[in-house]
Deep mutational scan, measured.
Amino acid sequence: NLRWTSEAKTKLKNIPFFARSQAKARIEQLARQAEQDIVTPELVEQARLEFG
């Protein structure tokens, strides 16, 4: 299971509600691909840039 830093959680809250669950799934996918067990603000930002 993935842990989220408080900064990453804050960044996730800045994503519009309607896109948040999809973004969260993508962020967690990116973390797993990078073999990380902690979601960082950088991963959230990477996903945000993908979504535009």
Rank of each mutant, 00 (worst) to 15 (best):
N1R: 08
N1Q: 15
L2V: 07
R3P: 09
R3V: 14
R3Y: 14
R3L: 13
W4P: 00
W4C: 00
T5F: 02
T5V: 04
T5E: 05
S6K: 14
S6R: 12
S6P: 14
S6C: 07
S6E: 15
S6H: 14
E7K: 10
E7N: 05
E7W: 04
A8K: 00
A8G: 02
A8N: 01
A8C: 02
A8H: 01
K9C: 09
K9L: 14
K9D: 04
K9R: 11
T10V: 12
T10W: 10
T10R: 15
T10Y: 10
K11D: 06
K11R: 12
K11P: 00
K11W: 06
L12H: 01
L12T: 01
L12E: 01
K13W: 11
K13G: 09
N14S: 12
N14I: 07
I15F: 13
I15H: 02
I15G: 02
I15T: 03
I15E: 02
P16V: 04
P16F: 06
P16W: 05
F17L: 13
F18C: 08
A19S: 10
A19D: 09
A19W: 15
R20H: 05
R20A: 03
S21L: 11
S21V: 11
S21I: 11
Q22Y: 12
A23T: 06
A23S: 04
A23M: 15
K24C: 05
K24I: 15
K24W: 03
A25E: 12
A25D: 09
A25T: 09
A25I: 13
A25S: 09
A25P: 02
R26L: 11
R26E: 04
R26P: 01
I27W: 02
I27P: 00
I27D: 00
E28K: 02
E28H: 03
E28V: 05
E28T: 03
E28W: 02
E28Q: 03
E28F: 02
Q29C: 06
Q29K: 09
L30V: 04
L30T: 02
L30Y: 08
A31T: 06
A31F: 01
A31R: 01
A31I: 02
R32L: 10
R32V: 09
R32A: 06
R32T: 05
R32F: 09
R32N: 06
Q33L: 13
Q33G: 06
A34I: 09
A34R: 14
A34D: 04
E35M: 15
E35D: 14
Q36H: 09
Q36F: 09
D37S: 12
D37R: 10
D37H: 12
I38W: 14
I38D: 04
V39M: 01
V39T: 00
V39A: 01
T40N: 03
T40C: 03
T40F: 04
T40Y: 06
T40M: 04
P41Y: 07
P41H: 07
P41T: 09
P41A: 15
E42T: 05
E42Q: 09
L43H: 06
L43M: 13
L43D: 02
L43S: 02
L43N: 04
V44G: 00
V44C: 04
V44Y: 03
E45C: 05
Q46P: 02
Q46L: 13
Q46I: 13
A47I: 11
A47T: 06
A47P: 01
A47H: 09
R48E: 11
R48G: 10
R48P: 02
L49F: 09
L49P: 05
L49M: 11
L49G: 07
E50A: 06
E50K: 07
F51K: 05
F51D: 04
F51H: 05
G52V: 15
G52W: 14
G52P: 11
G52N: 14
G52D: 11
